[in-house]
């Protein structure tokens, strides 16, 4: 058995997804009502610049030829030029990506750190107060619009309690951003050994990360509880109990490792939610990530920017799913082995 070959095979399975994404984003640009060139050139464009854009996109050519041009642009990393800033879209996205990633990862750590223990506790003590608490948290969590949670965190922790800094950006204006190493302020400040900056960055990120985390906590806790319950009710747990294995062994080596598989599957969905919620949270907290970039671009009808945003988010999501698949292959020996 060869794990590496299996992981390699998983990688190739992502190719159809990427092809699908490229086709869909291409079709979306061509589905624009009226003349796409007008959209891409922006509302302030004159006849000449519209004509230039039309030539650049190849809109006067046949659809397959246009697609070929589009593919060529993608290969060169050319996502067009943002009409609002005049800079290439890919550059803008690249500078803003670390901010979004940092926010998403902190939110994810918070969500997993809360959801897994909650779900496991609820599953091992069904119909106790902790189980009911889990149920309430789970249902309330998914019901909270993430932008609404964010706003009221701001109201409570900034306006009333004055515990949080003003909800504007990644770091308070009195601090200077740490030297760029990873682009993650939390990590970069630690590398620089600047704990004051770390504290400031942490204070900024905690509210947006928690509001995002609360939103995805629910599906994770729910799935943890359900899959733990299912694992605990299965025959092999009975075998383990009948052979007198210790409680922790039964719970973790037998039940939890099996329960992990459906949780990993849910993680894909959780990331889908998070990348969407990113946009909303970044708007609320004026977070300088790619989500708020896309919102601003939408307002001024900066079409190339929006398109670039959708495409890069989708590619990011495919990469994340791939990572989850690889993780799954590591946990579950059965994957791809029946062939």
């Amino acid at each position: 058995m060869n794990r590496f070959a299996m992981i390699g095979q998983r990688m190739t399975q992502a190719i159809p997804s990427i092809i699908g994404i490229i086709i869909v984003t291409f079709l979306l640009t061509r589905a624009l009502p009226g003349d796409p060139a007008v959209y891409f050139a922006g509302p302030a464009a004159d006849e000449q610049s519209i004509a230039e854009v039309r030539a650049a996109l190849g809109l006067d050519k046949s659809l397959p030829e246009q697609f070929w041009l589009y593919l060529g642009d993608l290969v060169r990393g050319d996502l067009g030029v943002s009409i609002s800033t005049g800079r290439p879209v890919i550059e803008e996205l690249a500078t803003r990506l670390p901010a979004s990633l940092e926010l998403t990862l902190v939110a994810l750590i918070f969500a997993i750190g809360t959801a897994l223990p909650l779900g496991i506790l609820a599953a091992t003590r069904p119909n106790t107060w902790i189980d009911h608490l889990c149920r309430v948290v789970v249902t309330a969590g998914v019901s909270l619009p993430v932008f609404f949670t964010g706003l009221f965190f701001v109201y409570i922790f900034y306006y009333i309690a004055d515990l949080a800094p003003s909800p504007l950006g990644r770091i308070d204006i009195y601090f200077i951003a740490p030297d760029h190493v990873t682009g993650f302020f939390l990590i970069d400040s630690l590398i620089a050994g600047d704990f004051e900056t770390f504290r400031a960055a942490f204070a900024q990120i905690i509210l947006p990360a928690v509001s995002m985390g609360v939103f995805v906590l629910a599906p994770l806790a729910r799935m943890t509880r359900a899959s733990m319950l299912q694992a605990l009710g299965s025959d092999y747990i009975r075998t383990a109990q009948a052979s007198g294995l210790s409680r922790s062994k039964v719970l973790f080596a037998y039940a939890f490792r099996n329960a992990l598989l459906p949780i990993l599957t849910t993680l894909g969905m959780v990331f889908s939610f998070m990348l969407g919620a990113n946009v909303l949270v970044e708007k609320v907290f004026a977070w300088p990530g790619i989500g708020s970039y896309a919102v601003n671009a939408l307002i001024v009808s900066d079409f190339a920017a929006v398109q670039g945003f959708v495409l890069s988010m989708a590619i990011l999501f495919v990469v994340i799913n791939l990572a989850i698949d690889v993780l799954y292959t590591i946990v579950d020996p059965r994957i791809g082995m029946e062939g």
Partner: peptide, 24 residues
């Protein structure tokens, strides 16, 4: 299955944004 997978390959809210932006 392939079509559904393609939809699911996008973060769904982001796809919705793209669709509304494109369709009007």
């Amino acid at each position: 299955g392939r079509s559904v997978d393609t939809i699911m390959a996008f973060p769904l809210f982001v796809l919705a944004m793209g669709i509304v932006a494109a369709l009007g």
